[in-house]
């Protein structure tokens, strides 16, 4: 599913460099990425999603070389094929929960907002336990509810790959297992591959595979 070869990336200020000789996941695999803070886990997710472009090497997702796509195609690929659960949920406070979930459909032509999509969004929110919160503003939600709304937004376009950056961070034990179950169930239901960054070692046994990021070379010169 994901294939990375001879990847090298540095931020413009040159203070952080990441080198990954090889990294691979298979379809429908659930992989945990662990490692110390600043190791470049989020950077890797950004490179896979096409938010950042490697200086060298290649990132391939489902046979498509993401890093070789032009800007517009990379964006379309990201929005249609990848579901990204961001570290801080990245919900927009001025939109209600339903509008946040449907937001990707309103900002690109790659997705079409139809009545069926709306129904599916409401259904998905119901499955994630926020079906009764659709009309509430994102700013009025609890942390757990925000996390579910962010997961809902990531899963609605039925992605082949779900990237979760600390999706269970800052949650109490009961909730973090619940959220993880939701992510796993959703990924299973959508037959998606899951690549999740986590610091929580309690969660690791649930994944198919755990990749320790310290095996890759990261330099933080700051």
């Amino acid at each position: 599913m994901i294939r990375i070869q001879s990847l090298a990336f540095a931020y413009r200020d040159g203070e952080f460099r990441l080198s990954i000789p090889e990294f691979e996941t298979s379809a429908r695999e659930k992989v945990a990425l662990i490692g110390p803070s600043g190791a470049g886990k989020t950077t890797l997710l950004n490179l896979i999603a096409g938010i950042a472009v490697p200086d060298q090497g290649e990132v391939t997702v489902d046979g498509i070389a993401v890093s070789r796509l032009d800007d517009a195609r990379r964006r379309d690929f990201r929005i249609t094929r990848i579901g990204f659960v961001f570290q801080d949920f990245e919900l927009l406070d001025y939109l209600n929960v339903l509008d946040n979930i449907l937001h990707p459909y309103r900002i690109t032509r790659a997705l079409t907002l139809t009545a069926e999509v709306r129904d599916r969004a409401a259904e998905l929110a119901g499955q994630l336990g926020i079906g009764d919160k659709l009309a509430r503003k994102a700013g009025d939600l609890s942390q757990g509810e925000k996390q579910r709304a962010a997961i809902c937004r990531a899963l609605l376009p039925d992605p082949d790959l779900v990237l979760a950056d600390e999706a269970t961070g800052n949650l109490d034990p009961a909730n973090k297992f619940r959220i993880l179950d939701l992510l796993f169930d959703s990924a299973e239901r959508h037959q998606a591959t899951l690549l999740a960054v986590t610091h929580d070692h309690e969660l690791l046994p649930r994944f198919d595979r755990v990749v320790d990021f310290s095996q890759f070379r990261a330099e933080d010169r700051s």
């Binding site: 999603a49 517009a72 961001f86 690109t108």
Partner: peptide, 11 residues
Amino acid sequence: TIFKLGCSRGT
């Protein structure tokens, strides 16, 4: 955030 979701600078 909007950019990360897949929105173009034009949008």
